[in-house]
Simulated scan of single mutants.
Amino acid sequence: MRADIQNLFIGIHMLYHAHERDLTISDMQPELERHGYKVADREVKQELERLTAENFLTSHGEGYSITGAGIEEFKEIQKNLKELCKEVLKPVQRKKADTIA
């Protein structure tokens, strides 16, 4: 998976987990690895800081909490993912090759 797309998925996972509970780097790294992402602490910290800079998370010591803007962003992501999943999770079928007569 391309790095830019992986980073989007990681951000979505972080917003989801922040919606459930406060986050720490040490909590998020194993959670992301469980989903198949290979990320270092540094990368997890960078993404948490990016989400904080965008006002989706707020930091307090070692922890991060979701903000009102983060909740609204997560709701919008959920809505868009629902529509996207309807389209992209259908089985992939090969197109029949055009035959030359």
Rank of each mutant, 00 (worst) to 15 (best):
E76L: 11
T67H: 00
Q93F: 04
L81D: 07
D4C: 07
I5P: 02
N80M: 06
V92P: 00
E49T: 15
V44G: 01
A69H: 09
L8H: 07
L15V: 03
F56H: 03
A69G: 02
E43C: 09
L23Q: 11
G61P: 00
N7Y: 08
N7C: 06
H60L: 09
H17E: 13
N80T: 10
T99M: 14
K45I: 15
R94C: 01
V88L: 05
L51H: 01
V44R: 02
D98H: 14
D41E: 14
K82I: 08
I100C: 14
V39L: 13
D22N: 11
T58E: 02
G68A: 13
Y37I: 04
L51P: 01
A69E: 10
I71C: 06
S65F: 14
H60Q: 07
K96G: 08
M14Q: 03
D4R: 12
G11T: 04
M1I: 05
G68Y: 07
H60N: 10
H35C: 06
M14Y: 09
L15W: 04
C85Y: 13
L23W: 09
R21N: 05
L57K: 00
V92C: 03
K95I: 04
G63K: 14
H19E: 14
N55I: 03
Q46A: 14
I66A: 05
L84S: 12
L23M: 04
K45P: 11
D22S: 12
D4I: 08
A18F: 04
L84I: 08
D22E: 13
T58K: 03
A18K: 02
A101C: 10
V92K: 01
K82H: 09
G11V: 09
I5C: 07
L51I: 01
Y16I: 05
D98V: 13
I25W: 05
G61R: 14
F9V: 06
L15Q: 01
G61S: 07
L89V: 03
K86P: 01
I100V: 15
K82F: 06
D98I: 13
E43V: 11
L8V: 10
F9A: 05
A53G: 11
H13F: 11
S59H: 07
Q6I: 11
K86G: 07
G11I: 10
I77M: 00
E49D: 15
L81R: 02
E20N: 15
R34A: 13
H19P: 04
A69M: 07
G61C: 00
T52V: 03
E47K: 14
E20C: 05
R2M: 13
I71R: 10
I100W: 15
I25C: 15
D22K: 12
L32W: 01
L51Y: 03
T58H: 00
L48E: 02
H19V: 09
G36S: 08
E83W: 07
I12A: 09
